[in-house]
């Protein structure tokens, strides 16, 4: 089993044991597998790529082939404790709709995404005049799956307008280190290469 990415490790730490979890965009199932082993969660996944789904089911995970943009509506309200969307929000067609659905079907939503407000991204755009390519945004603009990139500040604004509360937030710098608490959102928006949020309906 592949090692967890740093954002997945932070997501995993937010999940309480013995809960019911939906991982939206679960990829090869690494996080679900980890949560099953370490937290005894009743885990489910949705994955767009067929190869990912087949890999998950072949290792005994409960995963359906599906699309975050269209298939979350099938789930009844509140049936999961956690709905996880790691590094997927920026690739959805309707991030606001997906976020609303996550908050509907689960008590908590956990969302991680690359921060387009990171100083390196800002600098790359300013200095080169070209779409930035960084470690978290490795593809050229024409090949990128990321059609709705946002900054931490954008995300906070969206949550506010959707009446979604932020329970916890974790900013991760470019060395994969968690930035200390006590920083203002403005500073986090500058220093975080990626961010993880634990969210709840208000």
């Amino acid at each position: 089993m592949a090692r967890l990415r740093v954002d997945q490790q932070i997501v995993a730490a937010m999940v309480e044991p013995d809960t019911r979890v939906l991982d939206v965009g679960c990829g090869d199932g690494a996080l679900l597998h980890h949560l099953g082993r370490t937290k005894r969660v009743d885990g489910r996944g949705i994955e767009l790529s067929q190869a990912g789904v087949n890999a998950c089911v072949a290792q005994g995970l409960s995963v359906v082939q599906g699309d975050a943009d269209t298939d979350l509506t099938a789930y009844p309200a509140g049936i999961f404790d956690y709905a996880i969307l790691s590094q997927t929000l920026q690739a959805t067609r309707n991030p606001d709709g997906v976020l609303r659905e996550l908050a509907r079907i689960a008590r908590f939503a956990i969302v991680s995404f690359p921060n387009f407000g990171h100083w390196r991204v800002r600098w790359a755009l300013l200095a080169t005049g070209r779409m930035p390519m960084t470690r978290t945004l490795p593809d050229p603009w024409y090949a990128s799956q990321n059609i709705h990139l946002c900054t931490v500040t954008d995300f906070l604004d969206l949550c506010r307008s959707l009446r979604i509360e932020i329970e916890r937030s974790v900013a991760i710098d470019r060395r994969g280190q968690v930035l200390g608490n006590g920083r203002t959102p403005r500073l986090a928006n500058l220093l975080a290469e990626q961010a993880v949020f634990l969210l709840r309906r208000s």
Partner: peptide, 18 residues
Amino acid sequence: IVQALNAVAANVSFVELV
């Protein structure tokens, strides 16, 4: 089938094979 099972929060996997 999958949507109906999801609607009742059943434990379901779904694969479409090429």
